[in-house]
Amino acid sequence: MIVQWPCPGGDEFAVAIDRGRRFRLLIVPPLFAEMNRTRRWLNGTMRALDLRGIDSVMPDLPGTNESQQPFAAQSLHAWRTAMARAARHFDSTHVLALRGGALVFPNVLPGWVVDPVSGSTLLRQLLRARLIAAREAGRHEDSANLLELARSDGIELAGYDCSPALIAGLDSARPLDEGQREIRLGELGGAPLWLRAEPGDDPAQAERLATLIAAEIAA
């Protein structure tokens, strides 16, 4: 179900399956388009976790999804603060961070990271998508110039209005995992949905992720 939670800058929404149980997992989703590509799959993972006796919550990052806050006001720092606040609000005992979610998750919690990615890799991909789109439209853009502009004035990348602060964060951020276990794609089987051009689903893979978490959370 959808619940509201208090976040700096205004209330935010979260998908939550909360039956007041002992294990309570905070899910920090991937960033940008990868968030949309994995949303159904992560919802399926939450239902699979529920069947295994684990509560879970997936909060919106401010400025994304159902959030009322402007994307242009966001930074990695703001997302980090928000996710730490969500962990406190929902009394999370564990965390699962995926891809760019590993740049902003509360790493004081035990848990798992899936295919963590550096901010510079994400930024490079977004800049490239813009270069390719410009080229298709017959304009020439140059990634070094674009990055300079982005650092000083902010930039629109793949429909996201990125502030200079977000660009600066992405430019230098590395995954924050510290003792969390890294889950490799080989353990999950199937294809990485976060790479897929169209949002997809893989219920069997969601079951395997939930099974793996359930086995290790109680160990």
Partner: peptide, 14 residues
């Protein structure tokens, strides 16, 4: 049709 600019960037990254 799946190969839009974001998919192309993702493909080259992968």
């Amino acid at each position: 049709p799946e190969l839009d600019s974001m998919a192309i960037a993702t493909l080259f990254g992968a």
